[in-house]
Simulated scan of single mutants.
Amino acid sequence: MAGAETAAADASIPMKIAVAIFAKTIGLSPVKSRLASTVGVELAEAFYSRSIACTHDMMLSVVATSKVEVFPHWALAEEDGPVQFDGRGYPALWTGEGDLGARLATISERLFDDYDGVVMIGSDSPQLCSGHLVSAIAQMRHDPDLCVVGPAEDGGFYFFGTGRPVLRKVWESVTYSKDTTFNELVSRLEGRDIHYLPKEQDVDAAEDLKRLENNLSGKVGRLSESQRELLQWLRSNQGCSAC
């Protein structure tokens, strides 16, 4: 009985979740380099700015509908990035120097100083819906030790969340931007229970744009305004994969 009472008491305690949206700042860093090598820098930047807008609006909906307190942050690759992102709705942090593993570790450590759980997502999966993330965050509320991971179709991951920090040496031991990245990360989470989200695409290359268009077209009635604008842009630039 005492155990049940403790569990009930714990469940009633508000859980504060920080969401770090990893992004680059157009004008300070090259964005979507593989995409730009095929379609050109202008179109790649145009896509990325729309992807950022979709991610921003999705997080607004997550904050409004989640039963857990959610606090989005931009996690920017450039030291001057937070100044450029001022006014985009959420606090902006610099990820610090180093490779992606070091930056993931830095942001995670910084946010765990102030929050009960940390979620890290990318900014190049604009098809994600808020309900998808709300459900994933709910999993963390029921089991803070759980690692919730969303695999990307290219072998990486688009979502990572937990209520207990992952050691820096784990983040830094993974090889990123490879088709083995997701499997490497999961294999290093020894002793942690893992909840797997559905596999999703991100956009790295020109061929991903048509797949994204088909993805968004399949859920027109459920799209946010920014996602509808992105879909219209994709349809208007449907030949860009051949540029």
Rank of each mutant, 00 (worst) to 15 (best):
W171H: 05
I137K: 04
H142W: 14
I194G: 07
R222S: 07
Q232D: 09
I13W: 06
R228M: 02
D10M: 13
D113V: 05
G122F: 09
G191M: 01
T65L: 09
W233P: 02
S130V: 06
I137A: 02
T6C: 13
E213A: 11
V83D: 12
A7R: 15
H132R: 12
A136D: 06
A7V: 15
N214R: 12
A23T: 15
S66R: 07
D145I: 14
K24A: 11
C240W: 12
W233Y: 01
V68H: 01
M140I: 15
Q84S: 14
A9E: 15
L234I: 06
V134S: 02
I17G: 02
G161E: 07
D116S: 09
Q127N: 07
A2F: 12
V174M: 00
S12P: 00
G27E: 09
I194L: 10
I194S: 10
L209D: 03
V63T: 12
G218W: 06
A46F: 07
S51A: 15
R50I: 00
I137V: 06
L231P: 02
A18L: 07
E225V: 13
I52E: 13
D204T: 11
K67L: 14
L209F: 05
M58L: 13
D116V: 06
G117T: 13
A102D: 05
D208C: 08
A53C: 06
L104D: 01
E5V: 14
G191A: 05
N183W: 10
A44C: 07
V220G: 03
S224L: 03
G239E: 15
D116Y: 08
D143L: 12
G101Q: 06
E42V: 10
F157D: 01
G40S: 08
E213H: 05
D113H: 11
V70L: 03
V83G: 12
A77N: 13
A136Q: 09
V39D: 01
T95Y: 00
G81E: 10
Y196V: 14
M15N: 01
T6Q: 12
R235V: 09
K219H: 10
C243Y: 14
D114W: 08
E97A: 15
D80V: 12
V149Y: 04
D10L: 15
H132C: 09
Q232I: 04
